[in-house]
Write a protein that binds this DNA or RNA. Structure first.
Length: 607
RNA sequence: GACUCGGUAGCUCAGCUGGAUAGAGCUACAGCCUUCUAAGCUGUAGGUCAUUGGUUCGAAUCCAAUCCGGGUCACCA
């Protein structure tokens, strides 16, 4: 925090600063701002913010009470624009902020569309997310990944970073070959066009068909007296898939042709899904192009003696000193393993984009992998190494437990999105508030609400934690949900539309407020809540946690709704009050809009 | 087994750089639409913060052990 520009400092930061100064002035002791604990005051006590004094009691050899009195006196006397009163209860120094401070705050920010956002800081961050396999369509787990990736990118942008969004498509490997084999065997030349299916679902079906056929062959083999292990190896369809992978790596023309055709189908399907959920990428990497990367780095690693070779000529790194294992980086046959291409890709990204940080949005089952990846890159001395950050997120489970493709409990992304949009249509029609909307407007509204509900549901919990997706609860549009916030925004916009006269002619300038009508509790708590926005955006970025934003804007919406129910804006007690409330309303709408935008969620003008 | 993450209200989750009587939403119950959108607001009910011990002025938060659950420990990705 730069103490030079007081105007841009949060209230809490200012309190810390003046408290540190006060302690220095009173007791000739240097105190770091960060050492001072400031909380919001509990509602049952008088005051807005509380300085916790216990930490200094011992050092200053004062009783909490005496210290509180002295500090309080000094603070209020020396900061008349910020503080108006104090009281001390036990070791807590409760401070009251002046009304004029809050009036000034709303006055200077209500018309600022960038409120909460930081200026560009000339640092670049790459965010890799989504990273699908091309053998099946996206599911609920991918949605969490996509929403997180998009949101963290937006949050970092709001903190001034230059963002490059990337996607690595896993378009090669045995799983793709399985779909290809099954298509050859069972499709009779069918295509997405001929069947009217979305390409990714079409290909995914053949992946399922492969597994069905494979299972059947295993059963037959076992019935003929073969052991299970042997049957799994011997099943003809599996052998065919493995052969196809070899042919693919050899570049056999007909295999390449089929591979390209089927991937094209899948990409068409993915693009539809990405469009509907709002995912986009500045750069897409394909594993078929990157899987050979990193080979030269293995050589370099051997030269630098970061890696070592075993008798069978396979290449390893010893990470036991770092509490991990030995890890292979090149097979004895000279082919590279997964982590090798990741090292290579990290280097490639660095060359291409030269980012200060590289965030990988990947599930927590790969925690170990990314720990290893970062370590190896560091030991190799790659310039990108220290910037590697694994944004690890927990699995999405159903109330019945984990999603299992074998049991058909996987929630398909397209289905889910469609269902959410459907439900938002039903609810909207039931309420009948937008009967004058055109068809296009209606469709766009259903989309905004349906996706808003879904995205908010998946983003409102800490990414690191696994979460339960309850279909019934997630489609609830009340309480801690996206639609609740969208609704609050629409409400505010409705008021602003109705009071356009005031909005345009007075521009809401409130220069003073009469002493007869100080800030009412709900007015003040709304201002206090709004003032937190820049701090929250900063925290969400440093902790890579969009849920911080979700929880915060829910709070803003709740606080606004209480304020709105209690106080009339159009028929306020005085002109000053009316303008103040208009300012608070406009700033609330602004914060809700920006906050939702950071989550990738739109807010309607009406709903 | 080793490593790792978690266990907070009936359910889903906040709170965890130690601070006042642990908070939301959902559910249940009771109220509030002649006044700016009731997808709203207000209230009631709901807790041994997994257990035990420790650290200290103070522990849901830090430490240790135990119990329970997830993940990882592939020449898969």
């Amino acid at each position: 925090m730069q103490p030079t520009n007081v105007k841009n400092m949060s209230v809490v930061a200012q309190i810390k600063q003046v408290t540190a100064k006060a302690i220095t002035a009173l007791y000739a002791i240097d105190i770091d701002d960060a050492a001072i604990l400031v909380n919001t005051t509990k509602p049952e006590f008088e005051g807005d913010y509380t300085v916790v004094l216990f930490a200094f009691v011992k050092q200053l050899k004062k009783s909490p009470d005496a210290l509180g009195q002295e500090l309080g006196d000094y603070l209020v006397a020396n900061n008349p624009t910020l503080l108006t009163a104090y009281n001390v209860i036990k070791g807590f120094l409760n401070l009251s902020i002046t009304d004029s401070y809050w009036l000034n705050f709303t006055n200077t920010n209500f018309n600022n569309e960038h409120f909460g956002k930081a200026a560009p800081n000339s640092k670049r961050v790459m965010v890799e997310y989504s990273s699908p396999n091309t053998n099946k369509p996206l599911h609920l787990g991918h949605l969490r990944n996509n929403f997180l990736g998009w949101s963290i990118a937006e949050i970092l942008k709001a903190n001034g970073y230059d963002i490059v969004k990337t996607c690595i498509v896993n378009d090669r490997g045995i799983h793709i070959c399985k779909s290809m084999i099954a298509w050859q065997l069972f499709a009779n030349g069918a295509t997405p066009e001929s069947t009217g299916m979305k390409g990714d679902h079409f290909v995914g079906d053949y992946y399922v068909k492969f597994n069905d056929a494979y299972k059947l062959e295993i059963e037959q083999l076992i019935a003929s007296g073969v052991t299970k292990d042997q049957a799994e190896k011997d099943a003809p369809i599996m052998k065919a898939a493995q052969q196809m992978l070899i042919d693919w790596e050899a570049g056999k023309p007909d295999v390449m042709q089929l591979w390209q055709t089927m991937n094209t189908w899948v990409y068409a399907g993915f693009n539809t899904t990405y469009n509907s959920i709002g995912s986009d990428f500045d750069k897409t990497y394909y594993e078929s192009n990157t899987y050979l990367l990193g080979k030269d780095l293995v050589e370099q690693g051997l030269e630098k003696q970061v890696f070592f070779q075993k008798e069978d000529s396979s290449v390893w790194i010893d990470l036991t000193a770092d509490g991990l294992d030995e890890k292979i980086v090149r097979r004895k046959d000279g082919t590279s393993v997964y982590i090798t291409q990741d090292i290579g890709l990290a280097e490639q990204k660095q060359k291409e984009f030269n980012a200060d940080q590289s965030i990988y949005v990947v599930g927590d089952e790969q925690n170990y992998h990314f720990k290893v990846l970062k370590l190896i890159c560091q030991k190799l001395g790659l310039p990108s190494a220290d910037g590697i950050f694994h944004l690890s997120y927990g699995m999405v489970e159903l109330p019945t437990g984990k999603m299992k493709s074998r049991e058909g409990t996987v929630v398909d992304a397209d289905d889910l999105v469609a269902e959410m949009i459907n439900i938002s249509q039903q609810k909207t029609e039931e309420l009948g508030k937008v009967k004058d909307f055109s068809n296009d407007e209606l469709l766009s509204l259903y989309n905004t609400i349906g996706l808003g509900a879904l995205k908010f549901f998946l983003l409102r919990v800490d990414p690191k934690k696994k979460m339960v997706f309850n279909p019934e609860e997630s489609i609830d549009f009340h309480g801690f949900t996206g639609p609740f916030i969208q609704y609050t925004h629409a409400r505010i916009k409705s008021i602003l539309r109705k009071m356009e006269q005031e909005v345009s002619s007075f521009k809401f300038q409130v220069s003073s407020i009469d002493s007869d009508s100080p800030l009412l509790p709900l007015e003040k708590s709304l201002a206090i809540t709004l003032e937190l926005f820049p701090t929250v955006i900063g925290e969400a970025a440093t902790e890579h946690d969009p849920s911080k934003v979700a929880i915060y804007i829910f709070n803003v919406a709740k606080t606004f709704n209480s304020f709105y129910t209690e106080h009339s804006i159009a028929n306020a007690e005085s002109e000053e009050k009316k303008l103040l409330r208009l300012q608070l309303s406009q700033l609330s709408a602004q914060v809700l809009k920006t906050g939702m935008q950071l989550l990738g969620i739109g807010v309607p003008e009406r709903m």
